[in-house]
Nucleic acid binder design. Structure first.
Lengths: 143, 143
DNA sequence: ATTAAAACATGATATAAGTCATATTTAGGA
DNA sequence: TCCTAAATATGACTTATATCATGTTTTAAT
């Protein structure tokens, strides 16, 4: 579904959304441990997200990564799109070229409502929305 | 979601279910073209499925692969399990260890009902069921 | 029996995904 | 202004997945 990289990126961004701010930046190496992802790897992913203005960062002493008000409004789908490419989620379960409701592959009816709904949720829900869920105890971040 | 190998395997099995029989075996190289999969690769996958009694085969002249009545009753999930392993479908969207309804990850509610549904469908529907759908024009096999 | 056609088994190669390491650039504080 | 802490950029390495190739065994027909 998602690549490992996207999963890591989502976790890291949500961690930042909950625990960081403009006045409380977090180092890549300090994100690594709580979300259980190798630090060099998460650093690389955060750099990529930073380049696309999905997370914020400053270099030098007291620098680090953080989520600002503007980042908070970004929908989750953008994270996945940057890391995995925009159309990874669009392909049919059997990777049949023109699989659609008119000419469905044999598994189309099992999967299509699922994927459509998932994509809509990823478009609708922002980083900030998810952070609120975590803060209110509706959902949990590992570990 | 599925690996390419599983997708190929599913396509090949469904192709056999529609076009083969005990008296009409099909060569690996003749499956390759209609389902758009390299022939050496599909041969390997069919051998694996044959070892697990999901497809039938006989060697020698007039041999080939085919689906018999017993194979026809096998649920689709078995194909995926043999190729991808049993628990690939079970993991949460973020690969959070103990993600469940009590302690859901932030994306749990987006994905869980659908994954459950997909798995149930793969368990419930057999190779024969899918073949019927194709034969009755309810669904289509590439190309 | 001999031969040929096919699956079967095994391993080699290629490509992509994931992980790690190092050097460079930027920014703040002494 | 100089030093240090951090992100950034780049590339090397590792592992998993996908693909290809070759030799071996089984089966049926002659």
């Amino acid at each position: 579904m998602f690549s490992n990289s996207s999963k890591y990126a989502l976790k890291a961004v949500l961690y930042l959304a909950v625990y960081s701010s403009e006045s409380n930046k977090i180092l890549a190496k300090n994100i690594s441990e709580p979300i259980n992802v190798p630090q060099a790897y998460i650093a690389k992913l955060l750099q990529e997200l930073s380049r696309h203005n999905i997370v914020s960062s400053t270099r030098g002493p007291n620098g680090g990564f953080y989520i600002n008000a503007q980042n908070r409004e970004i929908p989750l789908i953008d994270i996945v799109s940057v890391i995995d490419g925009a159309n990874r989620l669009n392909s049919c379960l059997l990777s049949v070229q023109n699989c659609n409701n008119e000419k469905p592959c044999p598994l189309h009816s099992f999967a299509d409502p699922f994927r459509t709904d998932l994509i809509n949720n990823l478009k609708k829900n922002t980083i900030g929305d998810m952070a609120k869920d975590i803060e209110s105890g509706k959902s949990f971040l590992p570990l």
